[in-house]
Computed example of a mutant assay.
Amino acid sequence: MTYKTILVSLNEIGRLSESVAAAQSLARETGAHVSGLYVVPAVQVYPSVGFEAAPQVFEGNRSFFKDNVQRVKQVFEEAMQREGLSHDFHQIDARTPVIAEEVVAAGRVADVVIVSATNPDEITGVERDFVEQVVMALGRPVIVLPFKGKAELSLNEIVIGWDGGREAARATFDALPLLKKAAKVRVVRIDPQKDPNLRGSVAGADLAEALSRHGVKAEAQGYPTEGQDEGQALMRCAEDCGAALIVMGAYGHSRLAEFIFGGATRFVLNRMGCPVLMSH
């Protein structure tokens, strides 16, 4: 099993170089084809307010992304051509103002999708809950890059956040092509001492053993929260061991039109310091 098709979302223009570099790195490791996706959203139409008879139309986002099409395409294609990587570029003229909808539709035929987190302190034109929509609706593994700082996608060491749940299992085996190439993989159970069923055993040892049958160099360990959020502890563990990729399940549910993430998932998305592969 390996990845054959990588889709990289290019709409987070402030992180364009990081997104393209991550796709390059992953393609080099896997030999996969890279599809660059750039969405030009439809105009935003707001209902009329008060005595206004006509709805209000906002074209700012559409104009911004239309103006940057050629730049984005050039950056992506030049980067892929420099390394002789198989690639194509797709510009989609969206039917709605929601960029995530087009990324989800296109991403369902890819093996893995790369997106950048949106900076909550900036207005970038990409919807604030873009990552949540993509991760929850896609049905494919998603590699989320930090919205600031380093976004290098290194496979030197990978940390798996493991709790034995469905989402964690899905993420782990969705990440198998990367785990097999990693120099070292840590299966990390946060606060295993709090689960009476794990006393006297090494938490995650069964998963590490299963992964070893795939040729993964895995070891299991517990890791204490020390009063921190579980997501914060997982990131601290990755930082302590120098891991450049975290693999974890995305825990959440939809409530009306809003996606609600669990505490650890939300914390990691908001404060990640390295790329995170998530599956739901």
Rank of each mutant, 00 (worst) to 15 (best):
S201R: 13
R199M: 07
A203C: 13
R199I: 09
A183P: 12
L176F: 05
I158W: 11
I160C: 05
A175H: 08
A168W: 12
A183C: 08
K181I: 15
R189D: 08
D174N: 03
P196I: 04
A183R: 14
R199T: 06
A203T: 14
L198D: 07
A183M: 11
W162Y: 11
V185C: 10
F173G: 04
A168Y: 11
I158T: 02
E167I: 02
I190Q: 06
R189T: 15
D163K: 11
L176N: 01
D163A: 05
V188I: 14
A168P: 15
E167W: 11
I158K: 07
A175I: 08
K194E: 10
N197K: 12
Q193W: 13
E167R: 05
A175P: 15
P196Y: 00
L198Q: 05
D163I: 10
A182T: 12
D174S: 08
T172H: 02
W162A: 02
D195M: 09
P192G: 02
I190G: 04
I160V: 14
D191L: 02
L179G: 00
R166P: 09
V159H: 09
K184I: 13
K181H: 01
G164P: 15
R170V: 00
D163W: 15
R199V: 12
D195R: 07
D163Y: 12
N197A: 10
P177K: 06
G164K: 02
R199G: 04
Q193S: 12
G161I: 04
